[in-house]
Design a protein around this nucleic acid. Sequence first.
DNA 1: TTGTACGCGTTATCAG
DNA 2: CTGATAACGCGTACAA
Lengths: 338, 338
Amino acid sequence: MENKTPVTLKFLAEKLKMSVSTVSKALNNYPTINEYTKKRVQEMARDLRFTPNKSAINLKERKSRIIGIILPNLLDQYFTRSIAGVEQFAMQFGYNVIISQSHDEFEKEKQLADMLLKSRVDGLIIAISKETQDFNHLYQFEHMGIPVVYYARNPSFNLNCHKVLGNNFQGAYLATQFLIQRKHQKIAYLGGPKMINFTHDRFNGYINALKDNGVSFNTELVAYTDFNKENTIKAIQNLFSHPENLPTALVAFKEPILFDAIKYLKSINHPNFSQIECIGFGNNAFISYLDTPPVASVEENPESVGENAIKLLLQLINKEIELDHYQKIMVDCKLVVH
Amino acid sequence: MENKTPVTLKFLAEKLKMSVSTVSKALNNYPTINEYTKKRVQEMARDLRFTPNKSAINLKERKSRIIGIILPNLLDQYFTRSIAGVEQFAMQFGYNVIISQSHDEFEKEKQLADMLLKSRVDGLIIAISKETQDFNHLYQFEHMGIPVVYYARNPSFNLNCHKVLGNNFQGAYLATQFLIQRKHQKIAYLGGPKMINFTHDRFNGYINALKDNGVSFNTELVAYTDFNKENTIKAIQNLFSHPENLPTALVAFKEPILFDAIKYLKSINHPNFSQIECIGFGNNAFISYLDTPPVASVEENPESVGENAIKLLLQLINKEIELDHYQKIMVDCKLVVH
DNA sequence: TTGTACGCGTTATCAG
DNA sequence: CTGATAACGCGTACAA
């Protein structure tokens, strides 16, 4: 099946003994083209499987109808779920989506940003890597008039940018309040890496829920970990090391980490294990398979976060919102009781 | 920050009072350009943040250095894991990757294929949707000389194409053999949707392991389900409905389904529950949190499947392998004991 | 060593 | 109703 000559407009035109412009117009259903001519052209195009070259169109139109997404990790369900929200809306408005993962590395993120810039995406949605402190690779986009929406992960506080974020404060507040209503007074908080700045918001939600409900706060009930299992165990050991302040409940910043914690407590046969009630962020589908599941989960609605991000981005692309009129959208969490 | 004039080669040339071609050559480090000129051009390009327009280059070079990936679902860890293998290798050879999900719908898959075709990807890696029977949308690629590698999911038997598949036969064989070695004689097989054709391979692996080890086969020990929990429960009820043929072990085609099965058996307090040993395909990371985990998992090495797919695709792109010299690569599974 | 001219595939303008 | 022509941004033979 030789294919020396790609099927282009010119090729069709030669076959049909017409001009390239007529062929183009016929295919695009211009009203000024004779019906019979249209038929001929369109049939020939179909038979020869003519496929318009998007690069040529992009070049001409000076836009690509492509949205770029950069996210840290496709193995994290939060992000894959968020994509669904983006995709659906983008498609609906005639945009395609390029998904790429930074693996939480700054260098990789920069590389991906450059590639998307060269591809002249019409907009970028990004959840920054945990290493990202410098934003030059992203400023470039705005410098070229390409809108960027930061989502899921909050960049440094004083950065002027468009953001769509989960309401971490409210999520942690809900969780803590729920546990208080279940008569817990010693509620521990297990936080995440401090450089991920939603850690603070969640902590504040926890603190405020305590305060608003008249439960006293105790630093012995707070510990931090990262995504490393051993560090989580250390943190848990810490939390449970004060006999006069033994936690009866636990709020954790992320579910898999919570699972590690539960597993550990169970493994050491913690005396009050069966009374301890836990809540984590995530609402992982696997919870239904656990024998000692968390009492509830903070559902972060990542699809909705993605949807809000793409909606905002499309408004920016269509200039319904000024590029430098920075928006901040918060998506509320929901408490799901198991 | 106005940006009326996009920074193009022409723009740079005017600024520098040189010709466009000189600028182009300088940026591409042509040996025929004076060192001093190069310096000037490159500095100016950097200062003005010149970013080459990929559409223009694609048009000129008649290729995009982009690989398209279509897969059914980003929520399935098998597929997201497989992407890692593809990405790494593609990047290394200067290719970028466009990931898109068909949501296991034929129409969506067709739509995505068309868009990738228009984008003139240099190659396509696809795990077909479960609805895909017709392959015209994929033939188009080969018709235009663009190689396609089918991976993870096996298209209909008599389709001539390049394939990279998990060795499902071997995986099921390993699992069954392992259970036999642990003295099981009544090993049930829980298969998946019949239209997903690896179901047959796995069943054959099961059968052959039985035969090779002198264990008799019994149809009462075989049932099929899909991804619906209720159907799984029905299948399990079926398997355990013959008192004279009660399974003591179970091989399941996919882990989440196996978890449903285990959960059900536990919920009804099946008398010999604690003796039953199970193995499923997947090796899900959450297994470590289960109280009654499968005794082992069939690790399908999706990263390796992805890696083999991209390697093959690159060979096809580089014409190291003829487009119509169809290849079939099998990636072995590994048994992981928990 | 640098510049000129052309073409990649498409669409839009304007003339016929 | 149809066709010639220019332009989008870039790379490269060929000319100077």
